[in-house]
Amino acid sequence: MTQGTNDKPAAPIRRKPLAGAFGKIRIGSETVQLLVLAVILFMFFSIIVEKFLTVRSITSMGFQMPELGVLTLAMMLSIYTGGINLSVNATSNLAAVLAGFFMVRYIPKDAAGAVVTLYLAVAFLIAIAVGWVCGVINGLLIGYVGVPPILATLATMTLYTGISVGLTGGATVTGFPTQLSVIGAQTILGIPIPFLIFVGFTILTYILLDRTSFGFKMRLLGSNPVAAEFSGINNRAIIMGAYMYGGILSAVTGILIMGRTMSAAYEYGATTYVLLTILICVLANVNPGMGRVIDVFIAVVILQILSTGFQMALSGVRGSTFFKDFAWGVLLVLVFIANYFIRGRRAQSS
């Protein structure tokens, strides 16, 4: 299925899914659809943009997508359990700001390389601890107090951003040790390190969701919380767990952002990042009790191909970086419409 065709980008979406059966294969067919879409877009840009199919541009995509990618995994968990998490981006910025403060204030200027590495490790731990605490607060509000997720995380989004603003006074935190840029700007065997981190967390999240009892319970809880409670699942604990892990993933995003920009700020990404993560989840068909990590991964790749592709295709054109936003919206609408017809055909055939 992946060999695809190289013309008419709309055709593969409408193409009949591989299998006519239900169940596993049907879920798989969504993965195939996304994969085909990714391949088509990739080929499309390889043909129309001269330098798209180069190591350089592919590497740069590898550097750019991980931030949004890891953040989307955090968003996915909340949607998967029947909620939403608007505070993901505020969490990553708060984690980055606090870890950044630590690095700026406590790393001695004359520290040796190895010592700095140790300090960096502590800074990462601080970031992750901050993310964890943010997740705990979300989990408490949603799981224990019973605030609807959209309201709870809207409130904590403001709260976490408020802490960042208060601590930094709105300024950008800079002056990090150069070793930090390993996270954001180095490669191993030609593969960008942030991309490896993204792949690592994708695999970890996949295992968590599909191979552990925690993931199993998250899925059932998302599907029907009342029945989950009546099956002896401790809903509160599972919700707490989902938001804690989401908080940690957000913190990892914060570290990735620091590594790439060598700075931390309360406003990085702002609301648009949150909405983009939701958008990717929608494209990847993530719903309460439904969704696959691999689909989310592919959807992130699609976003990046689109973004880089249009940027390169329109380079020199005024405002070229913004065309991707427009294209993204149009693509999403087209995918919705295509899904509508595919669903209709499935309903007819069954």
Binding site: G23, S213, F216, K217, R219, L220, S223, N224, V226, A227, A228, F230, S231, G232, I233, G289, M290
Partner: peptide, 24 residues
Amino acid sequence: IREGLFLDQPIADNITVTLIERFL
């Protein structure tokens, strides 16, 4: 429907939900 079943989920998972820890 409301308290007993996860309608969208596989039959197998609806059955094993109470014993999931046994497969660890």
